[in-house]
Nucleic acid binder design. Structure first.
Length: 141
RNA sequence: GCAGCCGGGCGGUCUGUCGCUGGCGGUUCGCAAGAGCCGAAAGAGGAAAGUCCGGGCAGCACAGGGCAUCCCACUUCCUAAUGUAGAAGCAGUCCGUAAGGGUUGAGUAAUGCAGAAGAAAAUAACAACAGCUUCGGCUGAAAUGGUGAGAAGGUGAGGUAAGAGCUCACCAGCGGCAUGGUGACAUGCCGGCUGUGCAUCUUGGGAGCUGCAAGUUCAUGUAAACCACCCGAGAGAGGGUAGCCCGCCCGAGUUGACGAAGGUCUGAGCAGCAAUGCAACAAGGCCGGGUCUCAUGCGGUGGAGGGUAGAACGCUAGAGCCAUGGGGUGACUCAUGGAGUAGAUAAAUGACAGACACGCUCUUCGGAGUGUACAGAACCCGGCUUAUAGCCCGACUGCUUUC
RNA sequence: CGGGAUGUAGUACAGUUGGUAGUAUACUUGGUUUGGGACCAAGGGGUCGCACGUUCGAGUCGUGUCAUCCCGA
C-alpha cells in the first residue's frame, strides 16, 4: 500500500498550521505550486506505529479560482500527485529522528493538467529529499 | 420544410488500475475504549448557486389591551406558509406581423407639493379674436398660437358679433339601472357634463429577536483567579437606659489672610488648675454616618470575563419521492400501492488509460479531427431569480412548397 | 456555511423629502518670486460599479447582476 493517503497524514491542528506560515521555514516554488515545509519532533515513543513520517496540507486561494468547482479540482490534482510520488520523500525520511510538515499552496490562475502537476511534484519532492540529507550529514560529522 | 413562441422532460454510458469518505460484515491487537487489515455494496445538482421570500427546528424574551413604528394591498383560489411567492383570471400600458412576452394595479374625503420653461400648474387669460371706444381702455369668449410630462374631455357638424358640451353624432371617463360572471370586470340602456402626477393621509390585513458557527453534552485547564451574597470557625470597645445618653470607629463634608508656588503672618480654636504646649493639606470642634467590623476558608450560590480548537449529539425518513386511479382549467388535493444507507468538518465523492454514444467539420465513404455546457452538498423543506453545450415530447404562430 | 455593509473626478469623501452632481487634495494655465515652495486667480476632468424597470424626470425608489470589505463556535 505505498500509494495510500489517509486522514492521519493531513494537517488539521491550527497550532501547527500557524507555525508553518509564521515564517522562518524553508520554502520553494515549483510552478504551479509553492511548498513550505518544517521539521517536527516525533511525538510519543518509537513504538507509535500509526504516526506517519510526513503530514501535508493543500491550499488553493479563492482569489485565484473563483468557483468552488475549480478549487476542488486543483486540490484533488495536488493530492493525487503527492499520493503517487510520496515514496520519494518517505525513502529519505526512513530512519531519521524527525517528521516533516508540508504545505502546498497553489500559485497559478489557470487550471493545469495532471501531467504538469505530477512533473513539478516529482521535482519538488526529490529536491526536498536531497536537502534533508545534506542538512543531516554535517550534524553527524 | 424553415424560422419562432409557450409548457414539460433529460442533461452522458461502460471497462480496467490506483486512491478518498461514512456506515455494514469478518478478522488481528487490546481488560476496555479504540486502532490496524480484508471484503462486498453506497457516495453532488437542476440549478447543490444567489440568499430575494416563506415554513419547520432551536435558543432567548413574553400577563391582557391600545397607540406609535415597519411591512403588505386588482379578483378568486391553493398551501405548513401571513408573501412585490404560486395557480387561474381581470384591467391599463409597452414590445412583437403573430403565437406570445415584459411591467403596473386598495381608496382619494381632507391637506400639501409640482424645479426650469410658460400669461397661468388651478378662484386661469400673454398674444391673437369679436363688439364698443373719449384710442387711455372697457366688455365678451376661451376655438387658435407658443411653453410643458401635464393647459380645464377628443374628433366632426350645427350654432354665433367672436366663441363656448351651447346643441347633436361617435369615442374616452364618471354615476345609475339591467343582464352575464363566485369575483376583479364585461356588454347594453339612461343621465348629467368631466384636469395630471406624487406624498401625507384613510381603509383593511400582518409583524417578538436571533439563527445549526442556533443549541446541548463531555474532556483538558489557568484555578484554591476576580466580584457579590450566604454559611462555618476565630478575633476585638463597649457600657448604662423606659426613650436615649456617653464612649469608640469612619468621612476625599465644613472651618483664615498674602503669594504662581516654596513659604510667611494671624491665632479662629483645642488640651491643661496653671505656666505652657498644639494649631489652619493638620489637631480639635461642628456636621453627617456607623456601633458590628476585620481577617480567613481545597465551603456553597450567583455574576461577569479570559483561554484551549479536541470529541459527541443536533445530522438526515422528510408538510419527502415515484407509479396508478378519482376530483380540479390549474396551483394542488384524495385514495391505493411501491421503493428507499451522500452526510464531509483545513471539509470525501477523485486520477490515469481505453471503448461507446451524441453534435460539428473534412472525406478517397474505410474513416480522421474536434467538441460534450453551467456548475460542487454543509440543518432540512416549498417558491422565486440567475447560469446552462446539446437533445426529446406536446400545444400554437408566421413564411414558403405540394396535394 | 450563516449574517451584514459599501461601490460617486487620479485619490479620500459629501450629496435627508426624486428636479442643473459637489468639497478637499492632486492636475493644467496665469499671477506673485532672481528661481522654487507656499499663496492668489481661473480652468479642465464623472458610463454616479453594470443592466432593466417605476416616473415627465433616477446618484437617490424597485428588481437582477458584478466586485470589494466586515462579523459569527
Amino acid at each position: 500500500m505505498p500509494y495510500a493517503l489517509t486522514k492521519s497524514e493531513r494537517l488539521t491542528s491550527q497550532l501547527v498550521i500557524e507555525k508553518i506560515f509564521a515564517g522562518g521555514n524553508a520554502s520553494m516554488a515549483a510552478f504551479p505550486l509553492r511548498i513550505v515545509y518544517m521539521q517536527m519532533e516525533k511525538q510519543g515513543g518509537e513504538d507509535v506505529t500509526g504516526e506517519p513520517l510526513a503530514s501535508i496540507l493543500v491550499s488553493v486561494p479563492k482569489k485565484r479560482f473563483r468557483h468552488a468547482v475549480d478549487r476542488n479540482r486543483m486540490k484533488r490534482l495536488i493530492r493525487e500527485a503527492y499520493r503517487l510520488n510520496k515514496h520519494i520523500l518517505w525513502d529519505a525520511l526512513e530512519g531519521k529522528d524527525f517528521r516533516l510538515a508540508l504545505a502546498f499552496v497553489c500559485i497559478t490562475d489557470t487550471l493545469p493538467t495532471f501531467y504538469t502537476v505530477n512533473k513539478s511534484m516529482k521535482k519538488a519532492l526529490t529536491r526536498i529529499a536531497e536537502r534533508i540529507c545534506v542538512n543531516d550529514n554535517p550534524d553527524k560529522l
